[in-house]
Design a protein around this nucleic acid. Structure first.
Lengths: 293, 293
DNA sequence: TTCATAATTGCTTATAGCACACTAATGAAT
DNA sequence: ATTCATTAGTGTGCTATAAGCAATTATGAA
């Protein structure tokens, strides 16, 4: 069943002429004629009694019009409302991110986002485990490291640069390292992941130098590492987004700022991941663009 | 918009599997996939979040289902009820016939028709003028003579034979004619129409004889002619269907029964005419078949 | 009766829909 | 972890459907 047939029926019923409907809808009159005929064949009932000069609905045609017109209208409304909903950003947006990134980067920006898009209710799910994008009813996930899943669509939110940091108090009690090599004599705090726990990579003026490390503390949470370092536990490698404020407020101090430093695999970044490629809801786009600016 | 797409969407929503729906509806799974995709493109909204193992409706899909399912159901009901109405004889049947034929032939049979088809309400419009079949909302017309209208569809209800009749009292006062020729000396009563007023045609054993007549009375109504003849006004030519009962009850007597007699143009009949060719409602068919038996 | 216009029908072309074969993905079982 | 079975998605070719154009028929009005 094609509702276009029904729509031409409704138009013919209202205008009382095949030709007029054909003009209105940019169709050949023959198409209108055939549409009506097709409907009549389907219903096994004549809907209009017609000569070339006269077009009157049959009783069946009247009944059909009465019953079908509101249904078609309601259907169009339903469709249009879905299309509109896809076009204007609104509804509930579920965002997932790691606990730390959520607290440090996302949460502080949510107030401004709400001011800009008051129709989008944000639900922020902070979890360091993998959240299932497909079934978890999540609209956007923020992921660290390299692209996690090939079927999903990702946009790079930011490159991550690591900085060698320590607290003032630690530096007051220890010698300030002047080169990577000198770090060997220091209390090093590191992440448990393989990329970080065995070696750090330093780069400056085209020179690359890999420093095998023997960590004093190995911790699974970046936030905990940060806390330890602030408390003077030693020197660590932390992502720039996490310690920006700490540096500004002097809670942490950057060491060897002339060296670019990273874990063993250096190409880490923050990714913004959508669960499906084709239909990205307007609310998701709005949030993504907001974070990218 | 094709409602088949929506119907496959509904089926997928309910069953939760493309393949199952494909089997149910004898489609290739790829067709189901494409149907859903087409709908999604139309709505610019993803309706299902799917992997090869997992199919869950999105929020939009749920909303769409809630709103569209009752509409589709209602639409199907509407269509089916029209189809059913066309299949089972019921409703109001408007029949038109000449005043005399209606009174004499149709009306006496209506009681039996009602008993057989209690769901058909009959409206019998008796008129000697032409009733417009197309706009007059008439379902069946009964017409005399030759086919009146080429676009309409007609079935022959009965051949009409004419009989030469008179009343007993008239025959007691006059000589009984033994041959057509002897009619010249009688009081002849005739219809105004040209076919009848100038000559009557007699036929027997292959012989044809045209008798020019000089009518004593010329009347425009067959019923009035009949009444006059019953009252002894003379001899006339009347259609068999009109005088059958009169002959049985002796109110009229047939003359020259061995001769087949008619007006100038002999091929008259009673026709049953439908206003349109293609869709003959069940009620009309029922009435037509009833009259033909 | 003629005329102009409306519906219809035949014919041709363009589009859409379908099945088939194949690929990719993924959850479960081993 | 790896294999396996099953399921969604894609490319391709064929067929059915729908659209326009042109010609035909019909009919109400002048």
């Amino acid at each position: 069943m094609n509702t276009d047939y029904i729509k031409t029926f409704l138009a013919v019923y209202r205008s009382g002429s095949f030709v007029e409907v054909a003009k209105d809808q940019n169709l050949a009159p023959s198409s209108v004629s055939r549409s009506i005929s097709a409907l009549e064949n389907l219903l096994k009932t004549r809907l209009f009694q017609r000569t070339t000069r006269n077009l009157t609905p049959t009783r069946a045609g009247e009944i059909y019009f009465e019953r079908i017109a509101p249904l078609i209208e309601e259907m169009d409304l339903t469709h249009q409302s879905l299309i509109d909903a896809a076009a204007t950003p609104s509804g509930r947006l579920r965002v997932t991110a790691s606990v730390t990134y959520g607290q440090v980067v996302i949460a502080p920006r949510l107030k401004l986002f709400r001011e800009r898009y008051p129709n989008i209710d944000v639900e922020l799910l902070l979890s360091d485990g993998q959240v299932d994008l497909v079934n978890g009813q999540v609209d956007i996930a923020i992921r660290h490291g390299n692209l996690p899943d090939s079927t999903l669509v990702a946009r790079k939110l930011a490159d991550v640069n690591y900085r060698l940091v320590s607290s003032k108090t630690y530096l007051e009690q220890n010698e300030i390292p002047k080169s990577p090599d000198e770090l060997r004599q220091h209390e090093l705090v590191t992440f448990v992941y393989d990329n970080f726990r065995y070696a750090w990579v330093f780069e400056a003026n085209g020179d690359t130098c890999t420093l095998p490390i023997k960590p004093a503390l190995t911790i699974s949470s970046a936030a905990a590492i940060r806390q330890c370092v602030i408390n003077g536990a030693g020197i660590s490698l932390l992502a720039d987004w996490m310690i920006e404020e700490d540096l500004r407020k002097g809670r942490l101090v950057e060491l060897l700022p002339d060296w670019k430093v990273s874990g063993a695999s250096s190409d880490s970044a923050i990714w913004l991941v959508y669960p499906s490629s084709r239909f990205i809801p307007a609310k998701s786009k709005a949030f993504a663009n907001f974070l990218l600016n």
